[in-house]
């Protein structure tokens, strides 16, 4: 009987040992997969998730903080990604954080990166939706560049037309009476707005390309051998250069206009009646890239020198 007992004891030991090992292992794995412990959910809508799958990691500043719980298409250009995030990192993810789809290493798994933005914001809550950043897509970039080129061409021709007219011997009065010119200015402003938005994007993309080119890494490194693609980029850069030249002339011309308006106060009424035009001018000018320094200076000049404020105040009353 004693023999039976010691035998059963030994069997018991290995059974318990093995069970404990299994439970520990499953717990540790589960811990990594966020199946146990407290978690919360946030989501983000992407244009393209590049093969992100359920179970992929979510990283905050490079630390694994959760997993992708679900990936579903909500519209033809929108994919909703639900992420399961550890509760302990909740205060560190701000409402204005930006989610993007990235890759772990050179050939690793897809993952969602959550990056903080400099501005202050409160922490996210359960069910919040994060802003997303579109992943860099070469095709898309080239398309944007082309569009920008076209716009730049239109803007420059429009502006040239205006400046030509301004520079001509005709008085400012005749310029202001000429509705065609006003139309031109309007469309120019709209185009400037469009163009500035796109050029911000383009410069960002270009920066990424060039840094990629320098490091000679990734898919971009491979693409550089594609001569067609590189010639595209070269052309684009040349055109952008051209544009900034012409933009400089335009801004110079515009400052001349402002000076003229300053001098000839009385005759300005007609132009100023078109408040929409002014609004657009303001907005268009303000959104021009900070690189175009003259624009900003002009805007400041407009704000301080131009007696628009008074006029606005009056009409409000």
């Amino acid at each position: 009987m004693a023999r039976e007992t010691t035998r059963n004891l030994r069997v018991g030991i290995i059974v318990i040992l093995s069970t404990l090992l299994l439970i520990t292992a499953l717990y540790l794995i589960g811990d990594k997969q966020n199946l146990f412990g407290s978690t919360f959910r946030i989501s983000a809508k992407f244009y393209n998730v590049n093969g992100l799958m359920q179970g992929n990691n979510v990283r905050l500043s490079g630390i694994n903080v959760g997993t992708v719980e679900n990936v579903e298409i909500v519209a033809d250009s929108s994919v909703n990604v639900v992420m399961l995030i550890e509760k302990r990192v909740q205060p560190f993810i701000k409402k204005n954080a930006i989610a993007s789809v990235g890759t772990d290493g050179l050939m690793g798994n897809k993952l969602v990166e959550i990056n903080s933005v400099k501005e202050d914001a409160t922490g996210v809550e359960e069910g919040d939706e994060l802003e997303t950043m579109r992943p860099v897509e070469v095709d898309d970039m080239v398309r944007t560049l082309k569009l920008t080129n076209d716009n730049i061409q239109i803007i420059t021709s429009n502006l040239r037309l205006i400046t030509d007219k301004i520079n001509s011997k005709n008085s400012l009065w005749s310029l202001l009476m000429d509705t065609g010119v006003a139309e031109n200015v309007k469309s120019a402003v709209v185009n400037i707005k469009l163009m500035t938005n796109q050029s911000v994007e383009v410069t960002g993309n270009l920066k990424e390309i060039s840094s990629g080119l320098k490091n000679g890494k990734g898919t971009l490194g491979a693409l550089i051998t594609d001569t067609l693609f590189s010639s595209h980029i070269r052309q684009t850069i040349v055109k952008i250069e051209k544009f900034s030249d012409s933009a400089a002339t335009i801004t110079g011309d515009l400052s001349k206009i402002v000076n003229k308006i300053k001098n000839g106060q009385g005759s300005i009424g007609v132009l100023l009646n078109d408040t929409m035009l002014i609004y657009n001018l303001n907005k268009g000018i303000s959104s021009i890239d900070s690189g175009a320094l003259n624009f900003n200076q002009n805007m400041k000049a407009l704000k301080t020198i131009w007696p628009l404020k008074k006029y606005f105040n009056k009409t409000d009353k």
């Binding site: 059963n8 069997v11 290995i14 059974v15």
Partner: peptide, 9 residues
């Protein structure tokens, strides 16, 4: 239990 000892342990 006897077999558990001989087979397992």
């Amino acid at each position: 239990f006897r077999q558990c000892f001989f087979i397992g342990y």
